[in-house]
Design a protein around this nucleic acid. Structure first.
Length: 651
DNA sequence: TACATACCTTTCTAGACAGCATGTC
DNA sequence: CTAGAAAGGTATGTA
């Protein structure tokens, strides 16, 4: 099937042909046959880089009205936004947390690119543009499987369907065990394909030989080097590039350093580009590795360094990239050879094998269409049985996607949001909405009953939901849902604000402690050597904290992580530069950025809640009603801290 | 004395979504 | 409190 055969406006056909797209790839043709251009609901399960973006565009451009493209990552949103913006006479909007500066509404846009959370939030806040959407494309639906974020996606899709029942839906998925089940839930036709635009061979390295799935073998003699090093050198000798996946940041950096010393390439320009303003240990290490044509990639990198590395690798200035899983699911950075060196990851309960789906996604990065003759992906068997690895990852099908809605955390948030958003006014309406979720499709929805009861009691007890004749969210509950924080965070903040209101000394440190001690803030790892110093600091400044430092109830160690995070932010606000933060706390520049971003969000959410409490309209007022004045001090400190944070973060 | 080497002990561990309003050149 | 590798530390060996 050719692009010119499609029932698309001529300008779009011209546009695609101008990009060299003339005939459709087989999976794309199958999607068209399934009806994506006729407004039909379709689930397309196909490998990454097999042309999903075109499938999405065909559906969106032929839809009878505006389209919404839902992605799991901001970086992906930006990438798609740029791609779609090239389309002639199509106005594209982007809705993600980091494009907040745009004050616009999306009513005028033909295509809106958004993260699933942003869509959820837009629905919670009753944004008008959502109900006008004629076609929704969901990228990476297998995210339904993700603890934490999967439930948001399924509840959002259920709500979307309720809001706009005749909406077209196209869901794009990686190859998973039960794509048919997902399609069934969505009332969509399933299109499956394993076709790739470039051949992929997968294999396992064991004792000097890589044995491929097609029976082929390649001898790689490591000599005295680690096998992975030899595998990298081997593909570079052949004129290719290598992408190495490891399981920790430290590994990514140290392995990159050891490879950089071999000078596969010299990339002085890249190195100088990185070195400029690279004051932290991470930045310096990156520049040094780049000197020898090697890069590393993990979430501790500054956004700028990340994109320099990605681009340099794409332009082949770097021969090797050592990466944590940031690169497996993110933007497209392909290489001829993908080496999965570590197939286990630390989880808090020891080391666990990586999910098959994740390893396959790493594999999928192998081979640059049109540039490499083929792609090859290999696992390294060190100290484990190669046959076992092969069985688990090479021939095997990925795991099934299983709803994670049956968790306290997920239901807490989404039950509140459902009530606050007016999707249900009593228990049976709530159950009704829940019965349209993926969970209900896979399992018996009554399995949720006990958890929902428990969650409702919690929300009632914390003053977010009222249970009388029916169910309704209180003002506080609506507020918590609207600012998009976990109800646990909402409750913790209400309580801490009450304590703070009665305190003599409320400082920046106080409000930072409040927001850092919530579910929505990720806290920093406390090194053993730091623990003493931190606890001393806490003792010394006890009167500024809302928690009783001297007779602490609960887990003091984990609260120290809160204190550490608060201190980092306090220092950052005071103007301490990233290099010093790195030195003092061992925190990488990318992490500082992320902490600051979250802190700003949580400070503003806390502000909204504090305002509500000081208005006197709050039903739950931990302090006595005559002490309104005290909230004002806390509120002032919150606003001041957030302003200072914005100031520093904007440079 | 300087420095290999072997062996034992300690340390540390991936990623990343979300709100909102106002002023300014 | 999980597992495992790197980094750190110490005792022993060698020129």
């Amino acid at each position: 099937m050719d692009v010119s055969d499609l029932s698309l406006a001529p300008k779009f056909i011209e546009h695609f042909e101008g990009l060299g797209i003339e005939s459709l790839y087989p999976p794309q043709a199958a999607a068209v046959e399934a009806g994506i251009t006729r407004g039909d609901r379709v689930v397309a399960a196909m490998p990454t880089a097999s042309g999903k973006t075109l499938v999405a565009q065909l559906a969106m451009l032929s839809a009878d009205g505006p389209a919404l493209y839902v992605v799991p990552l901001r970086a992906l949103a930006t990438e798609k936004y740029e791609t779609f913006s090239e389309l002639p006479d199509v106005s594209v909007g982007i809705a993600t947390g980091d494009y907040d500066a745009e004050n616009e509404s999306f009513d005028e846009d033909d295509i809106v690119v958004a993260t699933s959370e942003k869509v959820d939030s837009a629905i919670r806040n009753g944004a008008s543009w959502v109900e006008a959407i004629a076609c929704v494309v969901v990228d990476e639906v297998h995210l339904l499987n993700a603890r934490g974020r999967g439930p948001t996606l399924e509840v959002t899709l259920a709500k979307l369907r309720r809001l706009v029942p005749d909406q077209q839906l196209v869901a794009l998925s990686a190859t998973v065990g039960n794509a048919a089940e997902i399609a069934d839930w969505l009332d969509a036709e399933l299109v499956r394909s394993t076709w790739r635009p470039i051949d992929l061979r997968t294999g396992v390295y064991d004792d000097g030989t890589v044995t491929f799935d097609d029976g082929g073998r390649r001898t790689i003699d490591p000599g005295d080097d680690p096998p992975t090093t030899a595998m990298v050198a081997d593909v570079i000798d052949d004129g290719g590039q290598a992408l190495v996946f490891v399981n920790s940041r430290r590994e990514a950096e140290t392995f990159a350093r050891s490879l950089g010393a071999r000078e596969f390439r010299t990339a002085p320009d890249v190195a100088t580009g990185i070195r400029e303003g690279a004051t932290t240990s991470t930045g310096r290490a990156l520049a040094e590795a780049a000197e020898g044509g090697v890069g590393f990639h993990h979430a501790g990198l500054r956004a700028e360094h990340r994109s320099i590395v990605e681009q340099a690798f794409r332009e082949r200035d770097l021969a090797v990239l050592c990466a944590t899983p940031t690169l497996a699911a993110g933007v497209n950075v392909p290489a001829r050879r993908v080496i999965v060196r570590d197939h286990e990851r630390f989880t808090g309960e020891g080391y666990e094998p990586l999910p098959v789906l994740e390893v396959h996604q790493m594999f999928g990065r192998a081979g640059r269409p049109g540039l490499d003759p083929y792609g090859e992906a290999m696992l390294v068997a060190t100290g484990v049985d190669a046959a076992e690895l092969r069985e688990r990852y090479i021939g095997a099908e990925p795991e099934r996607v299983e709803s994670k809605l049956d968790s306290r955390e997920a239901l807490r948030t989404h039950v509140l949001a459902t009530l606050a958003g007016g999707f249900a006014e009593n228990r049976s309406e709530l159950d009704d909405l829940l019965s349209s979720t993926f969970f209900a499709h896979q399992r018996d929805p009554s399995e949720l009953t006990d958890l929902v009861d428990e969650v409702l009691s919690y929300l009632d007890a914390t003053g977010m939901v009222r249970r009388n004749d029916g169910l309704s969210a209180t003002d506080l509950g609506r507020l918590v849902s609207r600012v998009y924080v976990d109800p646990l965070t909402g409750a913790a903040v209400v309580e801490a604000l009450g304590t703070a209101a009665a305190m003599d000394r409320v400082t920046t440190l106080t409000v930072l402690e409040i927001i850092c001690d919530t579910e929505d803030m990720s806290t920093q790892y406390v090194r053993t050597e730091e623990a003493g110093r931190l606890s001393e600091f806490a003792m010394r400044n006890a009167e500024q904290f809302t928690k009783p430092v001297h007779d602490f109830e609960g887990n003091f160690q984990s609260w120290l992580a809160t204190v550490k995070t608060a201190r980092i932010l306090d220092d950052w606000i005071a103007g301490v530069d990233p290099a010093d933060l790195d030195e003092r706390y061992g925190v990488a520049p990318g992490d500082v950025r992320r902490l600051a971003e979250r802190a700003e969000w949580l400070l503003s959410a806390t502000e909204v809640i504090a305002e509500h409490l000081s208005d006197g309209t709050g039903t739950h007022r931990p302090t006595d009603p005559d002490s309104d004045v005290e909230y004002d001090t806390v509120l002032e400190r919150l606003q001041e801290t957030r302003a200072a944070l914005l100031d520093v973060t904007a440079e």
